[in-house]
Design a protein around this nucleic acid. Structure first.
Length: 243
DNA sequence: ATAGATCGGCCGATGGACAA
DNA sequence: TTGTCCATCGGCCGATCTAT
């Protein structure tokens, strides 16, 4: 949005009456779907200072930069974490099974997916939003090249309940996937094992601008997630045995 | 700045009521 | 019995606040 604003401001300078229009925009009252953007673009088009091709370019660039902005409009944690994140992963890896009492008699919701023959998987998702801002999510959503600070808190992490973690992070323009053996989450230097009463075995891990690159080695392209899960499972087995 | 506690939100498991 | 609907509510979800 900021970039679009800057682009439009740049385009405005093509107008002879730019100052006048800026003043009008300032006073402008809009109701959805009308907006200051549509207002400025209309003026540019009408005065032939913006060609249709340029308009398409502007529009497509914005779409590319904000492909996943709609995900920031989901307000309920479970709507995002359970409905979207699980659904998204299931699309990428159709062989993931939803566990139930049928597939695992002891199952009681402690992990999210099962991959044959015996891999338990926990999915965690978070969105990149500007740290310490109280604006709505979709307004403080960050682009992946943003220099602003963020705090993605992966919580209720229970390393004993799964062999492999799949973490998803959403920016306005990209979705990143990490695949990590449970052991390596539990022993990561950023993992804090909250051990207050009733919370034993549960921890959290804050990802931010400064430590996120420590996890780059776990980053996986969407098409490689299943293979990565299987590899992580093997590694998990070895680590639990030999440390 | 960081660890971890708290919060509102609501999914989905569960079970009772009822029909066929 | 089997299937469907509906209301209840425990617990899981991640965002954000608090204490250190």
């Amino acid at each position: 949005m900021e970039k679009l604003k800057a682009q439009l401001e740049e385009l405005l300078t093509r107008l002879e009456n730019a100052t006048e229009l800026r003043a009008k925009v300032k006073e402008l009252v809009s109701i959805y779907p009308f907006s200051e953007y549509e207002y400025i673009i209309s003026h540019l088009l009408a005065s032939k200072k913006l060609s249709l091709d340029e308009y398409y370019q502007l529009r497509n660039d914005y779409l590319d930069r904000n492909l996943y902005l709609y995900l920031f409009e989901i307000s309920a944690p479970r709507g995002f974490g359970e409905l979207w994140a699980h659904g998204h992963l299931k699309e990428l890896v159709p062989s993931l099974q939803r566990p139930s009492k049928q597939t695992d008699p002891n199952y009681s919701g402690e992990y999210d997916f099962f991959l044959s023959p015996n891999i338990r998987i926990e999915v965690k998702a978070s969105r990149a939003v500007e740290f310490r801002s109280s604006a709505p999510l979709y307004l403080k959503a960050l682009a992946s090249d943003s220099q602003k600070q963020f705090d993605m808190n992966f919580q209720q992490i229970k390393p004993a309940c799964c062999e492999v973690f799949v973490w998803l992070a959403v920016w306005r323009d990209v979705i990143k996937h990490w695949v990590i053996p449970s052991y390596e989450v539990e022993n990561n230097r950023n993992y804090s094992k909250g051990q207050h009463r009733g919370n034993i075995g549960e921890g959290q891990l804050h990802l931010n601008k400064d430590n996120i690159h420590e996890f780059d080695k776990y980053l996986v392209q969407a098409k490689d997630i299943e293979a990565a899960i299987r590899a992580a499972f093997k590694r998990e087995k070895r680590l639990r045995k030999h440390g």
